[in-house]
Amino acid sequence: MSQWVSLFKKEMLEMARNFKWIWVPITFILLGVMDPLTTFYMPQILDAAGGLPEGTVIEIPTPAPVDVLMMSLSQFSTIGVLLIILTSMGAVAGERKSGVAELILVKPVSYGSFITTKWAAMLCLLWVSFLAGYLASWYYISVLFEQIPIVEVFISFAIYGIWLSFVLSVTIFFSSLFKSPGAAGAASLAFVIILSLVSGTLAHIFEWSPAQLMGYAEGVLRTGTLQDHSVSSIVFSVACCIVILMGSTYVFKKKELAS
């Protein structure tokens, strides 16, 4: 256990040295704040941009606060997911490529803790960044539009955070499967996109799919209650994360022993 903790500390230290603890939260905050601001100031922006004929009247209905929060959430689900994949795709693959993995694994470190410490450290960064971005979005919406009940915001935050954690686990898996970080990133992205597309189009069959979590997060915000199948989807996603982590440890071990 103490070995796990020291490996975990090493990962945290490395992320601090990479400035990940600064730029990832900042990027999430900017992502979260962008939509409330541009939506609120859209009339002024159109005015300033010009190009409209004199006397044009543009009536833009003020969107509901939940709609604006959903805009921010969809930013997280596109650019945010991309960011998660890009920052974690090299976690294992990069270290194997550069030989750091061998350096660590000559010490009596288990393969499992090597993978799980990386995952746990990235998970901390992810949840902190997502929380910062989501709260920033919520704050700006409550100032510019109307306040959304904080309890529902937190429930939706937790639900959506699980989907992001799932994306992270998938990326770690491909990162231990492939030699190059680029291939790991591409494979994770393809997997996430296909999963979202399939479970989006066949929503009635894949109610428990992790990709549905965004819909359930939206449901909580709109209705204030958990929707059907939310819990099964959450449980399934968490189970998936655990299985994927075990899978990555297995794959990583095999690859390491082979090389």
């Binding site: 400035f19 730029w23 990027t27 601001l37 100032v143």
Partner: peptide, 15 residues
Amino acid sequence: LILPILIIQLVLFVV
């Protein structure tokens, strides 16, 4: 509302 964004943007830039 705008100032905090400018500040964190500046932090990002400087870092």
